[in-house]
Structures are given as structure tokens and as C-alpha cells.
Amino acid sequence: MDQAFGIMLVTLEGTIRLSVPLILAALAGLFSERSGVFDIGLEGKMLAAAFGGGAAAAVFQSAYLGLGVAILVSLALALVHGFASITQRGNQIVSGVAINFIALGATVILGQAWFRQGGRTPALTGDSRFQAVELPFADALADIPFLGPIYTNLISGHFVLTYFAFAMVPFTWWVLHRTRFGLRLRAVGENPGAVDTAGISVTRMRYLAVICCGILCGIAGAYLSMAVAAGFVKGMTAGKGFIALAALIFAKWRPVNVMFACLLFGFLDALGILLQGQSLPLIGTVPVQFMQALPYVLTVILLAGFIGKAIPPKAGGVPYVKER
């Protein structure tokens, strides 16, 4: 019994750890896509931010400076995407694909040129890396049966960015659904013509949304290279940006659903690690590849309309042309 409880705690702790970058990236995509700008460049922005953050933290020996640089790098790419898809009215999907490739190549080339460690950035130690935060009384309460370990292991002992990610969920909901900014942002994604008629600049609203997206992707990248890992590794996002995109669709573009979708995908990931090479009663060994493919399969099934229906923002992917 105790052992099962222990395994459960480890799996749930892994779930939280693995779902944080998904939550941040999916919320980033939420801002952008709710305003009508599709973004499949989440992966690239996250990767570039992870590299920028890891590199800056190693050079300046400060985690917070690293975080700042990560956000700036991601923001720059977000603005490129904004320029291409809002100002130039280019194809948003094509622009996102381009950003993914530029980030994938540039992080390795620049990393190799600057640090000469095969595309890695130097290992981060001490102040240059985010440290786990012990919540008050974590040690004192550890001995209380059941609730103690949950508090100490599951709730306490995460990174600042983890708590930030979970705090961003209600905050995003509040911004999108309870503020004037959020109402306008959602309106721009549904019916930009109406927003324009009301005298609000569609271009400005969409740029603001893309900027929000850039900032959150930057934080997601920083989490990967400066909190979970001690430094940047070539291609370290490994498809997380696309899983986040899948989670965003799975959640039907709603903030709280996004969190649950990300937790589900994070849980599948953690479960996959746990089940690796283990034999289950009745089913036998589950191939690792099956667990890895599951989030994508689930998203396809959802998109096909077999589990409810995911309806994207109405004006998503369509550049706005002001009528004369």
C-alpha cells in the first residue's frame, strides 16, 4: 500500500513537472489564436527562448537575467510572426513553420559557435539556475500521514515558474473573460469587422495578443533550460510546442480546460516513463511508442469530432483587410 502511494506521488509529481511547459505554451497559443492569429510556431519560440535563456544565464550567472533574455528572444520571433501575418497578411501557417525551422537551426549553430559544446550551453549551477521553492512548514508537516507527503512532495518543492504557470491559468481566464481587453481580443478573433466598426484597431489588438504569446512562450522556454534542466540541449523542446498546440485544441481554446488538457498529456508522459519496460496484468508490455503517440492520437480523434467538437475562433487564420 505504502509503495503504491509512493509510486502515485512520484507519477503525479512528474505530471506537474512535465505539464508546466505545456501549460505556458498552450496559454501563449490561446492568446494568439483567440485573437485570430494561428500559431504553429510555439515550438520554435520555446526552443529559441530555452537557448537564449540558457546562454544568458550561463554568461551573466543570473537566472532572472536569463529569464529576461528568454522572453526577449521569444518576443522577437513572435513579432516576426506578427509582422508576417498581421501587417503583411501572409499565410500564418507558413510563417509559423518558418519560425520553427529558423529556431531549430539557429539555436544549434549559434550554440556551437559561442560555447563549442556540441550545441549545448554550459551547465548552470547556483544562482544561474532556478531553484526549487520549499513552501513553509514543508519539513514539519512531512510526517503527517497521507496529507503530509502530499503537501511536502506534491505541492511544495517546485520552481517559481511552476507556481507562476498554474497562477496564469485563472489569470488568463480573468483577462480574457472579465476585462475589456479580453473581450476585444476575443472579438477580434471572431469578427474583426465589428471591432473595427467600434473604432478599435484590429492590428493593434492582434499585435498585443501576439506579444502576450511571445512572453509566455519565452517563460516556457526558460523553464525547460533553466529550471528542469541545467542548460540548453539541442532540440530540447522535442515536440512539446506541438503537444501544447494539441492541448489547446483539445481544450477548445478555453483557459481552464487548457490546464486540464496539459495535465492529462503530462500525466500520459509521466505514465509512459513509469511503464517503460514494465509488464501490466492483462495487457502485457505497453510499447513506449504507444504512450508517446497517445496525445497526438487523442487530439486527432477529438478533432474528428468523436469527443465533442472543437470549434476554432471564427476569424482564425484570416488576415484582416480593412474595407474602404
Partner: peptide, 25 residues
């Protein structure tokens, strides 16, 4: 040695960006 295969990935991205998303620039 500084310029590996990954340089192609960058060029690929830039071509997609300029010939695709920014084709009307």
C-alpha cells in the same frame, strides 16, 4: 566546423519565411 548541417535548417526556414509568408513584402 562552426557551420554544420543545421545551417541548412536556418536557410530552409528563411526561404519559407521570405518566399512564403512574406511573399508580398
Amino acid at each position: 566546423p562552426q557551420i554544420s548541417r543545421d545551417m541548412i535548417t536556418i536557410i530552409q526556414g528563411l526561404v519559407i519565411l521570405f518566399a512564403g509568408a512574406l511573399e508580398h513584402m
